[in-house]
Amino acid sequence: MPNNLKQGLDSLKGVLKLLDDRSPSPRCWYITLAVVAVISVFSYSEGKFEFGVRAYTLITLVMMWMPYLLKLLALMGGGIKTAAGEIKTSGLAELLPQLLGVINEYEREILQDQAPTTQALIRTLRDKAEKEIAATVEEGQSFKLACQNLATDYDALRKSQPSGLERTQAMSGIATQMRVLAKKADYQTEDLQTLYQDSSGGNRVLTLSAIQAVSSPEHFPMVLKSIGQSESAFEQHLALRVAQTMVGDIDEEAKRQLKATIEDQQSGGEGKWITKDSDRYRLSQRIVQMIGG
């Protein structure tokens, strides 16, 4: 199993465990702090007891809520300001799609894994992760609207952040959410064609993510266009991923077109983006090998 996949699985299991943990902190934590809080309001001085709420009483009460605060920060993201600075977390709600994206990157390798237990683990983790992502849609909101909001987020992210690994990971997380929610959005072919023809890069990525969710050969022309005429490196990479899942379902003519488009993009020169130093080159080579001939 590739190291990246193993790390992704371990991280995904950890995130899902925390998301599933609805139980409060151990009772002894609350009992101990409650006793300390009660004792702290009493003091003995000059032969008599005095009653009063002191600073450490308030600190003790705050500590009782700390586990809930930390879990809230872990789930939603945020920061706590301290004298030493601000403790920040991006939030598990944001991290989960990125981890699921790592799993999807190695889907073909997973299918080739000879260990049934590994395959079963992947399916279980993926199902749980997708349910958590789907649950983020507010009650009464349509899944199509949620997908459209993600397309807007994608465009805003590309404009506001410089290119690099951090932005790519964030865009991958958005695309993963799109794929999960698109399964429930019931997109028709006409819907996807309209989205794809829009000038928005986010809508093109949404279209590819929706196609990835259903993997129907009738959508292949849009995938092929995003490989040969992509508007961004991320779009081309996603299109290659989708094409990889479709190789076994498209006819021989479509395979010929796919191979020719990939080889053209590998040829170098203006507008040829699949260079040998990119992940897209290695991915495209695997697709060519799958096609054969």
Rank of each mutant, 00 (worst) to 15 (best):
N104G: 09
E107A: 10
A55K: 03
V36K: 03
W65K: 10
G47I: 05
V102H: 06
L100S: 03
F49T: 12
T89W: 09
G101D: 07
C28Y: 11
E46G: 14
A34D: 06
I80Y: 04
L95W: 12
M66H: 04
G91R: 06
G78H: 11
E109F: 04
I31P: 07
V38C: 05
E46D: 14
I39H: 02
L69Y: 09
E109Q: 15
K81M: 10
M76V: 11
R108H: 14
G78S: 06
L75E: 04
V35S: 10
E109K: 15
E46V: 13
T57E: 06
V38M: 11
L73F: 05
T57K: 00
G78P: 02
P97V: 04
L72Q: 01
L73S: 03
E105I: 15
L33E: 04
S40Q: 02
T32P: 01
Y44M: 11
L99Y: 04
C28A: 09
I87P: 01
A34V: 02
A74Y: 13
E94V: 01
L58I: 07
L70A: 04
V35G: 01
A93G: 03
L58C: 12
I80T: 15
E46W: 12
E86V: 15
L75C: 06
I103Q: 09
Q114R: 13
T57Y: 04
A93P: 01
G78Q: 05
D113F: 02
G101R: 02
F42K: 01
T60C: 12
G77C: 15
A74W: 11
Q112T: 09
M63R: 14
Q114D: 08
L58T: 07
A74R: 06
S45N: 01
S45T: 03
F49H: 14
G47M: 05
F49M: 14
R54D: 02
E86Q: 12
G79S: 02
Y68F: 11
A34I: 07
F42Q: 00
T60L: 09
W29L: 10
D113S: 14
F49N: 10
P97D: 04
L75P: 09
A83Q: 12
S45K: 10
E94Q: 15
L96G: 13
P97Y: 07
Y30I: 10
Y56R: 03
E109S: 15
K48F: 13
K48D: 14
L96V: 03
T82P: 08
P97N: 03
L70S: 00
L58H: 06
I87F: 07
T82F: 14
C28T: 07
G85D: 09
I110H: 00
I87L: 12
L100P: 04
K81I: 04
I80R: 15
V36C: 12
L72W: 12
I59C: 05
R108I: 14
E94S: 01
E46H: 15
Y56P: 02
L92T: 02
T32I: 13
E50D: 11
T89Q: 03
Y68M: 05
E46T: 13
L72T: 05
G77W: 04
E94A: 07
L70Y: 04
Y68I: 11
V62W: 02
S90N: 07
K88D: 07
Q112H: 10
L73W: 00
L95S: 09
V41M: 03
D113V: 08
V62L: 10
T57P: 03
K71R: 14
I31C: 06
Y56I: 13
S90F: 00
W29V: 03
Y44Q: 05
T82W: 08
